[in-house]
Design a protein around this nucleic acid. Structure first.
Lengths: 249, 249
DNA sequence: TATGATGCTGCAGAAACCTGCAAGGCGGGT
DNA sequence: ACCCGCCTTGCAGGTTTCTGCAGCATCATA
């Protein structure tokens, strides 16, 4: 096999699988690993692939880099926030969790909206406070420095005393079989309490998190009333949830 | 799985869920936790994530910024703050009000101080949260947008359940005859409750406010244990308070 | 304060890498 | 046919990187 041929083959493989291993290629093409390495090096110098220890990666692999000071998928979250904000009517009592999606919701609230918001999330509370016509209620308890929300029995018992019209949860993972799940025990407890205390539960999530799983169970899919993603409601990925009777926006 | 691949996966997970645990990642990717830790460390050095004990956090999540406005008489308040901070010992339970002087106190706390701080003031809470060894407890209730603290019966009843070692009050007016006074009814109620719930009451104020009067009464001078101003304790303006048995710093 | 989880450091084996070299192929010129 | 220069390839060796492990330090939380 000629050198050019070989390199074309390698390039093809990289584009196909997004990655190649020197060891595998050397077996496939029956040349020494050194030769493969030299090929990869040349291709990398031409900018066609990215060489790494052990093989090479497709360039598209590394392109997705996230701006440091911006929230991941912020555009998507803004779309979600606007859809969610439309659900809130005057004089409603709204419970919310924390998270970047909820922050976007707080920012998306219309200025003339007159409602009561209750949350244990400090960043969320700071946003709600910006709105002149919104009553803000902070849930008190010990503060978790990582998640910047109040956690603990006191917070949960306060939530349970509430009868909210709506409850907005930013969720980290949702799955048909396991429902919504998360990875922080304390946060899960809070979210569970919120679901119980609200007439209607609205879950906000970017589509990437649909059909993913985290270790701790929050609630089943059936307990969700409304699911909001950045996708149009007729997207096929949302179909199973609609079939279960969930309102998808 | 290649190292870069792994790190790209981790980065994606962090952006998606705001938080990852080394233990979980190690199970998912089937490598030792050491390897995960090294990956997290590298990503953290590149500034892409924030490493914490047990895992890592998304960077965007942790940026709670609060406008650092220009504080009136900030230098004086810093002096007061340092005097006040010296009163706090390890394992104390401390109640504080809000106000710019209290914010300075929060900033002046030594980094290794290990204590519990309870407050209803959001700016104060944000400052306390910066300290790794301080437990922070938020008092919950309705939020007053002007004073950025929680106010109401719920907050007061929570404070009354507490037995604090110390209570720091930033005060707006103090006068030999009328004691400490203020102009916000709700805030006064909170401060009254704090005084009742603490073994020792410490008042912080710049000297300008000494011998001034506000409409609503908080407490008599006799109820104050310690008075801290930016002045040296032997300043003649403080003499009458010393004569009343108040410890002046 | 004790205890288990997590983190750090140094080490060791394996894999990958780099460098230099020699063998072999190929084409052009003599 | 032979020589020569150039390229390619494989190999030997020494170096670097990666990874897991062990032992001890540190943290978090009851």
């Amino acid at each position: 096999m000629l050198k050019k041929e070989r390199q074309a083959y390698i390039l093809h493989q990289v584009h196909l699988h997004n990655k190649v291993l020197s060891s595998l290629l050397s077996q496939e093409i029956r040349v020494s690993e050194d030769t493969i390495r030299r090929d990869l090096q040349e291709l990398a110098e031409e900018g066609k692939i990215i060489k790494v220890h052990g093989g090479a990666l497709s360039h598209s692999f590394n392109e997705v880099h996230y701006p440091a000071d911006n929230v991941y998928s912020q555009d998507h979250k803004k779309i979600i926030a606007h859809k969610a904000a439309a659900l809130i009517q005057n004089d409603m009592f709204v419970l919310t969790s924390g998270g970047t999606t909820i922050i976007e919701l707080a920012r998306a609230l219309p200025r003339q909206l007159k409602a009561t918001f209750m949350s244990g999330s400090i960043p969320a509370i700071l946003e709600y406070m910006q709105h002149p016509n919104i009553d803000v209620i902070m849930i008190g308890d010990r503060i978790s420095k990582n998640s910047k929300i109040t956690i603990g029995a006191e917070a949960i018992s306060k939530i349970k005393q509430i009868n909210a019209d709506l409850c907005f949860l930013g969720i980290n993972a949702i799955d048909l079989k396991h429902g919504t799940t998360d990875n922080d025990w304390e946060v899960v407890q809070l979210k569970k309490a919120m679901i119980q205390s609200a007439r209607k539960t609205v879950c906000l999530t970017i589509s990437e998190k649909i059909n993913t799983l985290q270790p701790i169970h929050i609630c089943d899919v059936q307990q969700i009333d409304v699911l909001i993603t950045e996708l149009p409601p007729d997207d096929p990925r949302l179909r199973p949830y609609i079939d279960l009777g969930i309102q998808v926006l």
